[in-house]
Design a protein around this nucleic acid. Structure first.
Length: 109
DNA sequence: TTTCTGACTCGAA
DNA sequence: CTTCGAGCCAGAA
């Protein structure tokens, strides 16, 4: 089993799994928490392997609360449905009242 | 081996 | 005010 070779992906999955119910975070927030800062894109890319990792990728959105990765989910509004299901207000692929549902790992952890 | 793209973000002009 | 470019890491061709 690997060991300290904790790849960026592994860390991303770890943090993403810590996202509480009804909360959301951004790629950059996770990246910054990992110490990458500008590797937000890698976080999103890592989400490609979210399936099978029990990672709630639907709780991860971009900095503006926009469901940029919704296209990677089944259907076209599944991501929005999941978020609304958790009590997150989403309109037009954009999270409303983002500050109220925003979960920053760097602050919470 | 090099090159390119990607679920992003920020700063500068 | 708007628009553009650069940087980050990883995987595929």
């Amino acid at each position: 089993m690997k060991s300290e070779t904790l790849s960026f992906f592994e860390k991303v999955y770890d943090v993403a799994k810590l996202i509480p119910y009804g909360k959301v975070t951004s790629y950059g927030a996770i990246a910054k928490y990992l110490g990458a800062g500008k590797s937000a894109r890698i976080v999103g890319y890592a989400m490609n392997g979210s399936p099978g990792k029990d990672v709630p990728a639907h709780r991860v959105v971009n900095r503006k609360g926009l469901l940029t990765g919704k296209h990677h989910f089944e259907g076209t509004n599944l991501m929005q449905q999941l978020l609304e299901s958790e009590g997150v207000e989403v309109v037009d692929n954009q999270i409303q009242d983002l500050d109220s549902v925003y979960w920053d790992p760097a602050k919470e952890l």
